[in-house]
Computed example of a mutant assay.
Amino acid sequence: MSAVSAVSLAPESRPPWVRTITEEDLPPLSRLDEEVFAEHAYPYFVLRQLYDLHGDQLLVLDDGDSLVGYVLVGTQSDKSRSWILGLGIDSGSRGRGFGRQLMAEALRRLRAEGVGEVRLTVEPANTAAVELYESLGFARLDHHENYFGPGDARLVMTLPLRR
């Protein structure tokens, strides 16, 4: 037996990868969404329906053991506009570029599908998210003081995909 074959090699550590959601991902996705968005988290039944409607546009970031993050996109039937309906990263995994990784893949797919524009909403005080979106080319479109109800403001941002 050679020395190399006798040595037990540790399995390679694979960085988290983006993939399309599966039905089995719904329970961990729901837990992640609740952790990230608390009172604004989607109820499980809504995530289920979003999966049924937009499952091909619901991407997860998988580290091999758990879901690290997700991005959910909803596209109008005429492909004139898509909305980023949610982007969430596990609290222990923030600041490592995973939000950018998910958004880049979502935007790549939308461009390939011929979508004209992408919009999203973000809490104005979430400077890290606003800076991420601006670095990806999103521009501030509007500020709604009561977007999600009284006193629940959101900044609407837009990114044209067709030039």
Rank of each mutant, 00 (worst) to 15 (best):
L87P: 05
I89M: 00
G69P: 07
E35N: 04
A153P: 14
A6Y: 04
E105Q: 13
Y147H: 13
R19L: 05
S82Q: 11
L141N: 06
F37R: 01
N126V: 03
G97M: 02
Y147G: 01
L58S: 10
F98G: 03
V46N: 06
L29A: 02
G86H: 10
L47W: 08
E39P: 00
G114Y: 09
L26M: 02
L132F: 12
A6V: 08
P160R: 10
E117H: 12
P28M: 02
D90H: 15
R162K: 14
H143W: 14
D142V: 03
A125Q: 14
N126K: 01
E23K: 03
Y70L: 07
L61Y: 08
F138Q: 06
F98A: 11
F37E: 04
I89Q: 06
L61A: 03
M1N: 00
F138L: 13
V115S: 01
Q49H: 12
D62S: 05
E113L: 14
D90L: 13
E123K: 03
E24G: 04
M103T: 09
S66A: 09
L47T: 07
A112W: 07
S93E: 15
R96D: 00
T127M: 05
T20N: 01
G99L: 03
S93T: 03
S80M: 09
T127P: 00
R140K: 14
Q101L: 15
L47H: 08
D63R: 07
L50K: 10
E134Y: 08
A106M: 11
D56H: 12
D65A: 13
E145Q: 01
F138H: 04
S77L: 14
H54I: 08
L87Y: 02
Y133G: 08
V36Y: 05
Y147N: 02
T127D: 12
E105A: 01
